[in-house]
């Protein structure tokens, strides 16, 4: 006799403890939600993990992981789902690798609406499809009401680095040019504008995007890019300081050259923030030799995710490894690490 299973109520249903218990309810959640939307041949094998072969003669591999706890879960321009896919793809891509596969682990809070979970899963599936990086394995846990915040998602990605590509901060040399791929601060401001105690009207959308395509195009043109990093939490200032410390060189950037949308600048003005410290989820910072800079810039600008790219500064010899900025006024100041963080959970 064929047993009838009532389908998940994806309209009004909620996550309950049984969805994490290892029983039928969990299997149903995985089947009807995750497997259905993430569908790909590796996942379809229903193994405990993903099993796949590497291309013949594969070079070095890259592995990166990222947890996502953003609040609110849905924001202008994206949601925790696509963010969790883009974030890890970008971390892999910043190593100069071509991202191949992703895993996704969910911590769900009891009572979380299944309709919201469906939206998140669909958004992840779409992001993975667009980036060409399938989600091949995953995990689900449920915690009691009050012990989570809706949903937390951890994704891990692996990728392959082509022979001859070697991106790392120690490649950075005095004289290198510093490039950014576009307008800074969109993600942070989009999130802040939707905070419960901070509602202001804005048309700014998160820039969340997978950068693997842009990175591939950049490496095609300039295989000798010295280093890449995506300026997420802590913004551009954090990346510059991390690279200054790691390379032992100083950096000088030019305020006038830094692309910031006027709405973002205005929101930052209102909130007393500096766009240099505001998070991005679809931008990168690149370092390359001065003679490669114009070529690299042209390639970035030719890509839809790099249309507003700019050369913003250069690396200098400075044993203090300070990051300085020439202000629009012609004076100089330091761009230090951010002090504390008053606006938690932006990614």
């Amino acid at each position: 006799m064929k047993t009838y299973t009532r389908p998940l109520d994806l309209k009004n249903g909620r996550v309950d403890m049984s969805h994490g218990s290892g029983g039928r309810a969990m299997a149903q959640l995985i089947d009807e939600l995750f497997a259905r939307h993430f569908t790909n041949p590796i996942l379809a094998e229903q193994g405990d993990g993903a099993c796949f072969a590497l291309p013949v003669g594969a070079g070095r591999m890259v592995m990166a992981t990222d947890s996502h706890v953003v609040s609110p879960l849905f924001f202008a321009g994206g949601d925790i789902g696509c963010l969790s896919v883009h974030g890890t793809i970008n971390d892999v891509a910043m190593m100069g690798a071509k991202p191949l596969y992703l895993s996704a682990a969910f911590i769900l809070e009891e009572g979380f609406p299944l309709a919201d979970l469906l939206r998140i899963v669909q958004s992840m599936a779409q992001a993975a499809r667009e980036a060409g990086v399938p989600i091949v394995t995953g995990d689900t846990k449920v915690v009691e009401a009050g012990k989570g915040d809706g949903v937390f998602i951890t994704t891990t990605g692996i990728g392959l680095v082509t022979e001859g590509i070697d991106l790392k901060p120690s490649n950075i040399k005095a004289g290198d040019k510093i490039l950014v791929s576009g307008m800074l601060g969109d993600h942070g401001v989009a999130i802040m504008s939707q905070r419960e105690n901070l509602t202001f009207e804005t048309t700014i959308q998160s820039d969340t995007a997978a950068l693997n395509g842009l990175v591939a195009a950049m490496l095609d043109t300039v295989p000798n890019i010295h280093a890449l990093r995506d300026p997420t939490r802590g913004g551009l200032a954090a990346v510059l300081n991390e690279f200054a410390q790691a390379s032992g060189h100083g950096m000088v950037i030019h305020e006038k050259a830094i692309p910031v949308r006027s709405q973002v600048a205005a929101a930052c003005e209102l909130l007393g923030l500096d766009p240099l410290y505001v998070a991005n989820e679809g931008k990168l910072v690149a370092y390359c030799a001065a003679e490669d800079a114009e070529n690299l810039l042209a390639t970035m600008r030719a890509h839809p995710l790099g249309a507003d790219a700019a050369i913003i500064g250069e690396v200098i010899a400075d044993t203090n490894a300070f990051v300085q900025m020439e202000t629009v006024f012609g004076g100089r100041r330091m761009v230090d690490w951010i002090n504390g963080e008053q606006l938690p959970r932006i990614c």
Partner: peptide, 17 residues
């Protein structure tokens, strides 16, 4: 500390290479 200390602490010449 945040904006100005490079003025005092920079000892290496600023090389605009």
């Amino acid at each position: 500390y945040t904006y100005g200390r490079f003025r005092v602490e920079v000892v290496a010449p600023v090389d605009e290479a």
